[in-house]
Design a protein around this nucleic acid. Structure first.
Length: 163
DNA sequence: GCCAACGTTGGC
DNA sequence: GCCAACGTTGGC
């Protein structure tokens, strides 16, 4: 398959608690890559399974943080595969309803971390009219993987690349 | 630590 | 298939 046959690139926002796994942690991982395991929400899983493609770009969002906000960009470097943590009894993500024969949960691999020059806090995101429809700014929006429009993505990246 | 908003579970 | 109870998320 040639690359040009694939559908257009998509843009995403993925949440992580920096106390658990930060963008800086991704920078420090061997190969600067990590399996995005532990997602236990069907909507987020479906985005990974059905819509994420290798080469899609991600706003790496720090949630439950001081402050919360976008730390930088990363990239989907491997497509979704069954989440092995679901059948690991020692994992906090263990789910007895998921088995290797019949996996319930999937995870992509994220890599190529590119931290912003300046961290873009939630408060700053709210100050830009072009970003007012971003799901992450919506009250009660808890989805850990969210689609982002190309315009929103570009806007946040240009903010982050400024000093 | 509080708590509003949301997703999931399970009894019926 | 409804919906109350429960657990979780995540900003504050």
């Amino acid at each position: 398959m040639s690359k040009t046959s694939s559908a257009a690139q998509n843009f995403w926002l993925m949440k992580s608690e920096p106390d658990v796994f930060s963008l800086h942690d991704l920078v420090g991982r061997p190969g600067q890559r990590e399996l995005w395991d532990g997602v236990r929400n069907y909507q987020a899983r479906n985005f990974m399974m059905n819509e994420m493609k290798v080469g899609d770009l991600v706003l790496f969002y720090h949630s439950n943080a001081e402050p919360s906000g976008v730390a930088g960009v990363a990239e989907i470097i491997e497509p979704a595969r069954p989440d092995p943590s679901a059948w690991d009894k020692k994992s906090e993500y263990f789910d007895p309803k998921s088995t290797p024969e019949n996996p319930r949960w999937y995870c992509v691999t994220v890599g190529k971390p590119r931290p912003f020059k300046s961290f873009i806090s939630l408060e700053e995101l709210r100050q830009h009219a072009e970003l007012k429809d971003m799901l992450v700014l919506r009250k009660g929006q808890r989805l850990s993987i969210q689609p982002v429009t190309p315009a929103e993505f570009e806007c946040v990246v240009s903010l982050g690349m400024k000093k």
